[in-house]
């Protein structure tokens, strides 16, 4: 009988699910409590760390990644990696938008030859 179907699949013991559930509840309360205190610049990283732990619990236990084959893991990790690339390269732009290479600004004295057609009131008023 087990030959024909999914009988052979590993059935996760209830205690895993129950403990995960309790841990998630606890972490939710924890993150709310932490948010009441001010850690300055660390606020966001701490909140994200807790969220990350919660997410990994859901991913590993509830979604069963822990018992999954390797490729699923590679797939998921790589998607997070691409998300990382996305955010990192965009910040490479946003974070350095105002900086110009000092060489460009000073010795050559480069000034754009382009001038707005109507200097003065035109540019700011219509949009």
């Amino acid at each position: 009988m087990s030959q024909q179907g999914q009988h052979s699949h590993f059935i996760v013991p209830v205690k895993y699910y129950l403990r995960t559930f309790i841990a998630l509840l606890f972490l939710t309360v924890l993150t709310v409590v932490i948010a009441q205190f001010n850690f300055g610049a660390l606020n966001l990283p701490i909140a994200m760390l807790v969220a990350l732990v919660k997410a990994s619990l859901v991913l590993m236990i509830f979604m069963g990644m822990r018992w999954e084959k390797g490729f699923t893991f590679v797939l998921f990790i790589s998607s997070i990696l691409f998300f990382g690339i996305f955010i990192a390269l965009i910040f490479a732009d946003i974070d350095t938008r105002k900086q110009t290479d000092p060489l460009e600004a000073k010795p050559f004295g480069l000034v754009s030859p382009v001038r707005p057609i109507s200097s003065g009131n035109g540019a700011s008023e219509h949009h």
Partner: peptide
């Protein structure tokens, strides 16, 4: 298009 110079070099 107004992207920063550093990002442009990386890309």
């Amino acid at each position: 298009s107004g992207q920063s110079d550093y990002a442009a070099m990386i890309f």
